[in-house]
Design a protein around this nucleic acid. Structure first.
Length: 862
DNA sequence: GCAAGGTC
């Protein structure tokens, strides 16, 4: 029997589609990567009985990057990234092992049906899958067609079965347009980012951003925030005047009337109108009207609307809201949360979904009434052909979900109920009055039936006092007429919800990537989130945008994206050649780049006003080995040392603290050593600022401290302080931390393994002798007399930390804690083999001797 | 160390 491989874009869709096509008659198992499942069933295909294997990828299989050597920032001129630098496709998420998984499942299959999402990205993933799988599939006999594309616009039985019955072919042009986008975004984004970062970081010491990034989505996103900031800054308040009248409708009731002219900007004219009206004793009713109006029930919920409400009403940022929604989705509480669609599919079981909520303590009454009296037909929304709108999938309580998950679920559910509720109907009454020659109006609204506002109370029409019943010609005594002086006020900073709307309107990002771009501009310290989730640009953000405006406004305008996308659409439609569009667009941006580089002084002038040059920032810390003057330690991200005399900058390890290390010097270059520490529960090591940036030996790389230094005789080096191979990672060595006493520690120089050794020793040295059993270096320890763990009055002991029975009891293995919880992770969470005794695998070379000692020495003496 | 786009 032949086999048909079918591939969807994500595991959830593979399952839904397989369920529909197999009519629920399938067997499923997890794939080798643990993320994707394979659903198998039998059926017929091309008129023969076959076995179907339905599985999925997890989004893109491949990602585009430069060849490795073009990722070295100091070695490559960013201008080369526009054309010379070759790119390659790499596996998008190596942990998922997607290529291997697809090849294992695809081997020996005869046909492939591609069920990827029906958009350009999905079309592109089709070809990623084909490139991976076709080489291992059975070869076709005699020109038989083996590759098929299923096109569907919703995950419903009819749509899916219809797609299966009318299979087509993947669209190469659409896929190519995505290839072009990827290459453009990569080359343009990286070139500008590298140039800006290096240029400004080399000049200023207080930018407080380790990366000054540029991108066709993130830069316009920042632009919107700065545009609002500029409006606020340039705002000039204007004084205006308003007439306000009060009429008495009863002995103790009065009505406040609005002036039909609204306001005037000339005091004398306002005064004239006041004079014309204030002596009048009566207000005459000119006209009355009563109109029934409706406030429409909401459209079915899509992602951006959910994000807007989450930000403006729930105070949840888009990134956090999306993570929360994803968790609700994987736990089965809501439907797929990434969708542009606001229209329910024709056969959507609205009543079934509603029935699930009929006993909920918070909205049972509304739901039961809807079910009894009949639901309202949802409004006609937009069908983007991706996923159904976001709806609750089962009932949940506050206690069950808790916190933000509950608040988001509650909103999604209330929104869903509202979409099948009736519109809110209210009566709008207005009375128009004449006082002297001037007209005034008052209006009031009274609710006829609340409709959907019953479940969305925050949307309800506010209660207002009802207006008196009267008719044309009636008169009321005038209480008073007064003139108010007011001022126009500036707009406030952009809210996140407003920003999302702007991004959506200009096509910046997608439903899935909008939260990422907003997050980016916050993390890069271009924008801060203020109260009410308003986005206030920082000095850095403002200067960048003003700089782009000055040099080339297109770099920051939202049109930069749409112009490129128009070109890409031509590729997708087969109206333009992929190569031509790519090279032409790259050429345009290459010119823009060179012009930007040539004009950077224009942006620099703005930088100078807000930021301080390197030489003027930081505080003196350690001495330069060349001029022997103090270098300044710049704490702002990225932290570094700067010698203003030599005009050199030395990068330092990040995310920790830097101190002077006892004024000790590196024997190679005479630079004073500094001590990096990630906190009391973490690890620390000394480093030479020069060697850290310019590795002294051939077997060392940039970014190595003394604990990785292969110097054969320096007292701080790996050679003298190394003990044995790390118990967890492959290449690390456990090194004595000479500063850790009196609670002595040994730490891996690669991963975050830390062994706490001796608490009450006043001196610990690494001996030249090694352990007979495991070859680790022995430790020579002097304990305090009073607290010595040794038998009798002994205070000194030499032994192996891993094998010596006395020491073994004292060693406890831990993982270094980072000074900030944000930076934790990595192997630190692996607990399994971490605790307990540490033992080095036998038979490996003693790590105390550098592998290539001769070459190290040779380099040293040259 | 960089972009934006999928998704876990």
């Amino acid at each position: 029997m032949k086999t048909v491989l079918m591939v969807a874009e994500k595991p959830s869709l593979a399952q839904s589609i397989a369920k529909i096509l197999s009519r629920g008659n399938m067997s499923s198992h997890k794939g080798l990567n643990g993320a994707c499942s394979v659903h198998e069933y039998t059926g017929t295909f091309a008129g023969q009985p076959v076995r179907f294997k339905m599985t999925s990828v997890c989004g893109h299989v491949m990602t585009l990057d430069f060849l490795g050597k073009y990722n070295k920032w100091d070695k490559v001129d960013p201008a080369e990234l526009f054309s010379q630098a070759p790119t390659e496709k790499k596996e998008a998420n190596p942990k998922l092992n997607m290529v291997k998984f697809l090849q294992v499942e695809g081997r020996g299959c005869d046909y492939i049906v591609l069920w990827l999402d029906c958009d350009k990205e999905g079309e592109n993933i089709c070809f990623e899958v084909l490139d991976t799988v076709l080489p291992v599939m059975n070869k076709a006999h005699g020109g038989e067609k083996t590759v098929f594309r299923a096109r569907f616009s919703s995950i419903t039985d009819t749509d899916i079965c219809n797609a299966m019955a009318h299979l087509g072919e993947p669209d190469h042009n659409e896929a190519l347009s995505v290839d072009a986008r990827q290459e453009l975004d990569l080359r343009i984004g990286c070139a500008f980012t590298r140039f800006q970062t290096k240029y400004f970081q080399g000049k200023y010491g207080d930018l407080d951003s380790s990366l000054i990034s540029f991108g066709p989505c993130q830069t316009p996103t920042l632009g919107f925030c700065v545009e609002r900031h500029d409006k606020i800054q340039s705002f000039k308040p204007e004084t205006y005047w308003v007439l306000q009248a009060k009429v008495n409708t009863d002995k103790d009731r009065s009505l406040l009337l609005d002036w039909d002219r609204v306001r005037v900007f000339d005091r004398e004219i306002a005064q004239m109108f006041l004079n014309l009206t204030k002596l009048e004793k009566e207000a005459q009713v000119e006209a009355t009207s009563r109109k029934e109006k409706a406030k429409q029930r909401p459209l079915a919920l899509n992602t951006v609307e959910m994000l807007r409400v989450a930000s403006s009403s729930l105070g949840m940022g888009p990134q956090h809201a999306m993570q929360t929604a994803e968790r609700l989705y994987t736990q089965g509480y809501i439907s797929y949360p990434r969708t542009e669609t606001t229209h329910y599919p024709e056969n959507f079981d609205l009543k079934g979904s509603l029935r699930q909520q009929a006993n909920h303590p918070y909205w049972a009454d509304s739901v039961k009434r809807l079910l009894a009296e009949g639901i309202n037909r949802p409004r006609k929304g937009h069908d983007a052909g991706d996923h159904p709108p976001i709806t609750p999938m089962r009932s949940a309580t506050e206690a069950e979900l808790g916190g933000d998950a509950w608040r988001l679920y509650e909103y999604i559910t209330r929104h869903f109920i509202a979409t099948v509720s009736h519109d809110c109907r209210y009566l709008q009454s207005t009375i128009s009055f004449r006082i002297g020659p001037e007209l005034f109006t008052c209006s009031g609204r009274t609710v006829i039936s609340p409709g959907f506002t019953e479940v969305m109370p925050w949307q309800s029409v506010p209660l207002e006092e009802s207006l008196p019943t009267c008719q044309r010609g009636n008169t009321f005594p005038v209480g008073e007429v007064k003139m108010l002086e007011k001022q126009t006020s500036p707009p406030d900073y952009l809210t996140e919800a407003e920003l999302i709307t702007l991004m959506e309107k200009h096509g910046i990002g997608t439903d899935a990537s909008i939260p990422v771009h907003i997050n980016n501009v916050c993390q890069r310290n271009y924008v801060t989130v203020e109260s009410g989730r308003r986005l206030k640009p920082t000095n850095l953000g403002i200067v960048l945008v003003h700089g782009y405006y000055k040099i080339d406004a297109e770099l920051v305008l939202p049109t930069i994206r749409s112009a490129v996308e128009r070109q890409l659409n031509l590729i997708a439609q087969g109206k333009a050649d992929y190569r031509q569009v790519l090279s032409h667009t790259l050429d345009v941006f290459k010119r823009k780049f060179h012009y930007f580089v040539d004009s950077i002084a224009g942006m620099d002038e703005l930088m100078e006003v807000s930021f301080s040059p390197l030489a003027a920032t930081g505080k003196p810390l350690s001495r330069c080995g060349k001029c022997h003057r103090f270098m300044k330690y710049i704490q702002a991200k990225p932290s570094r040392l700067h010698c203003s005399h030599c005009d050199e900058t030395y990068t330092l390890p990040q995310n920790g603290t830097i101190k002077l290390y006892k004024e000790l010097r590196c024997p190679l270059d005479d630079f004073e050593l500094v001590l990096w520490s990630s906190g009391s529960r973490g690890k620390s090591y000394p480093l030479c600022p020069y060697c850290y940036n310019h590795p002294p030996f051939r077997d060392m790389k940039k970014g190595m401290g003394c604990n990785e230094c292969t110097h054969p005789s320096c007292q701080h080096s790996l050679s003298l302080l190394g003990i044995g191979q790390c118990v967890e990672c492959e290449s690390g060595v456990l090194v004595l931390d000479p500063t850790s006493g009196p609670k002595w520690k040994v730490a891996c120089n690669k991963c975050n393994v830390v062994a706490h050794c001796f608490e009450n020793a006043h001196r610990v040295r690494v001996s030249a002798d090694t352990c007979n059993i495991c070859e680790a270096a022995l430790l020579d320890v002097d304990f305090n007399k009073a607290k010595s763990p040794l038998p009798g009055d002994e205070t000194q002991h030499v032994g192996c930390v891993f094998c010596d029975p006395v020491f073994q009891e004292l060693v406890e293995l831990k993982h270094a804690a980072s000074c900030h919880p944000m930076h934790r992770g990595g192997p630190g969470r692996r607990q399994g083999r971490g605790r307990g005794r540490a033992r080095r695998p036998p038979g490996k070379a003693n790590p105390r001797r550098p592998k290539d000692k001769m070459s190290a020495l040779a380099a040293y003496f040259v």
